[in-house]
């Protein structure tokens, strides 16, 4: 009973703060680049406005076009539900790292379907790039998670990203943690893999795929990427400081919520700092980025077994 209650708290909290995180990153970025910046709460208004707008549907679409937003947002909700984000023993015990990797790939696959179904050159280009990134990041994702699982002694996401394990539990985990940061950037279409702020065909990956979506569907896709980013920041946060174990009283819940807020604020700031201080990589150099992520993860795993 308490587990279900805590799960509901977690899902509601993550779904509530997700647009704020996206807005916060934009605000931090603007500040760091010397601009005034829009309010971090702008994203809520943007989503609500988009929800009320009319659909303009590409004449070329099939049933897939309409199914994609539901699937992608569904997977985002799945992530918000199953990972231990607010309490260290939250989430769903049955979800393990392979399910997590598979579900992340599932969301990429459906985004790609949506991009291709619009039948424009932009959609196809974004889809091709996204699929390449998703395919090449897969070994890094599995190897990184495997390193955490080896230290935790279990493959369940609860023991990977909760239950008192931080990146300092084992010295080699620092390498895996760095790999996880690279994976976070790649999975969430951030610098240096993708530029989330442009609509220029040379640079965009994620935005190109959702170009043909409008109205509520666009809102759903934008919301899904906000949730995914929030979840990743919270997971990274989990590996830096320890969250409280779940217990049904006000201080514990307050502590959990506070931890979440601190995580996303610090995470957003670091992400904005990273994005303001580096350039986007050329797409055809992406294999270097992926190799770095993979070899960081691999050396982390090997070090754990050697030390």
């Amino acid at each position: 009973m308490i587990t279900i209650l805590m799960l509901i708290i977690q899902v509601i909290l993550v779904l509530l703060i997700a647009p704020f995180v996206t807005g916060l990153i934009r605000w931090f970025k603007a500040r760091l680049q010397g601009r005034q910046g829009a309010s971090p709460l702008l994203m809520y208004f943007a989503l609500l406005t988009t929800l009320k707008k009319e659909h303009v549907i590409s004449a070329s679409r099939s049933w897939m076009f309409r199914f994609v937003p539901f699937m992608v947002l569904g997977v985002a909700v799945f992530l918000a539900l199953s990972l231990p984000l607010v309490f260290s023993d939250g989430g769903i015990a049955h979800v393990d790292l392979f399910v997590l990797a598979g579900v992340l790939a599932l969301s990429s696959v459906f985004l790609v379907f949506g991009g291709l179904d619009a039948a424009t050159a932009f959609g196809g280009m974004g889809a091709s790039r996204e699929m390449t990134l998703a395919a090449l990041i897969e070994p890094a994702v599995l190897t990184t998670f495997a390193a955490f699982a080896t230290v935790a002694g279990s493959a369940s996401v609860q023991s990977l990203f909760g239950q008192g394990m931080t990146a300092l539990t084992h010295p080699a985990l620092l390498l895996s943690f760095s790999a996880l940061i690279l994976i976070t950037l790649a999975e969430n279409a951030r610098y240096p893999v993708d530029n989330p702020a442009t609509h220029l065909e040379l640079t965009m990956v994620h935005e190109a795929m959702v170009l043909e979506y409008s109205g509520p569907y666009l809102a759903m896709l934008e919301y899904a990427s906000s949730i995914k980013l929030t979840v990743f920041l919270l997971v990274l946060g989990n590996l830096v400081w320890i969250k409280p174990e779940m217990y049904l009283d006000a201080p514990t819940i307050g502590l959990g919520v506070l931890g979440v807020l601190v995580s996303v604020c610090v995470g957003s700031f670091v992400l904005a700092l990273l994005e303001s201080s580096m350039a986007k990589m050329r797409f055809f150099r992406m294999q270097e980025y992926m190799s770095i992520a993979f070899f960081l993860a691999l050396s982390g795993l090997i070090l754990i077994l050697v030390v």
Partner: peptide, 29 residues
């Protein structure tokens, strides 16, 4: 879980946005 999440999204979309009218147009290039 997957089906439940997608269903949840479907219900949420019904509740939040009541946009039914839509316009068909060719893709943007």
């Amino acid at each position: 879980l997957l089906i439940g999440c997608v269903f949840l999204v479907w219900v949420g979309r019904r509740l939040v946005s009541r946009v039914e009218h839509e316009r068909e147009y060719h893709g943007w290039d």
